[in-house]
């Protein structure tokens, strides 16, 4: 299994979204607390403050597939460092240690650690053994060029198969002349003329994608 690690920029933006949501929640609770009035109101507010500040990320990460709303918006997710889903314990540790990442102010240690660590981990992540990764966005079924599928003329390696398939998938975003140019690179290898190579490659691409 393979995943792309999420770095400081995208994680900061996710944090800002979560932080805004938390602030908004606390603001609404504060109004309710003021209506309640007096010291009881403040006690209730402080109780909620504790819950929102410390349990908001933990609950979302544990029960929502490793994603707080902010992380979901940015397409990133928390997992254990073997890419299994994050557990309650892991999430609790990484979030409690935000306090360490915050030092000396405004998450200075967290930012530095996140940037310099080979796996983009902040201190809390290192302690909990968790990673933040990019979650592949669900793409809608792409449109394919109209061809009759044909099997490859010889065995293609995985990377080469990917390249042929990519050429088919991106037939709308690459310019036609560029597609011709790319196809011409392997025309001779495939035993085709340069100008008929593109259609042939598209046929192979359709075949590799499972059409028969």
């Amino acid at each position: 299994m393979q995943a792309d690690l999420a770095g400081p920029v995208v994680r900061s933006l996710a944090f800002v979204i979560d932080f805004s949501i938390r602030c908004l929640a606390m603001f609404i609770i504060m109004i309710a607390a003021l209506l309640l009035g007096g010291n009881v109101g403040w006690a209730v507010w402080l109780l909620f403050y504790f819950l929102v500040e410390w349990w908001y990320p933990v609950l979302f990460e544990t029960f929502r597939g490793g994603q707080t709303p902010g992380k979901k918006a940015m397409g990133i997710t928390v997992v254990n460092d073997d890419l299994t889903p994050v557990t309650l314990g892991g999430s609790l540790i990484r979030n409690l240690l935000r306090a360490a990442d915050f030092l000396p102010s405004f998450y200075t240690f967290g930012l530095i650690s996140m940037t310099m660590h080979p796996q983009f981990q902040r201190l809390g992540d290192i302690a909990a053994g968790t990673l933040v990764i990019h979650k592949a966005a669900e793409t809608s079924a792409p449109s394919l060029p109209d061809t009759t599928p044909a099997p490859p003329p010889f065995e293609l390696h995985e990377s080469e198969q990917t390249a042929v398939v990519e050429l088919s998938l991106r037939h709308e975003s690459l310019t036609d002349s560029r597609q011709q140019e790319l196809a011409a690179i392997v025309a001779e290898t495939m035993g085709k003329k340069p100008d008929s190579a593109l259609n042939y490659l598209r046929s192979i691409g359709a075949w590799l994608l499972g059409s028969r």
Binding site: L167, I185, V186
Partner: peptide
């Protein structure tokens, strides 16, 4: 990379080299 299909070009060149 997206506009010019670098990934495709690199792999195609390797393929052409491997076969030749």
């Amino acid at each position: 990379i997206d506009l010019e299909g670098w990934d495709i070009e690199i792999n195609f060149r390797q393929l052409a080299k491997r076969r030749s």
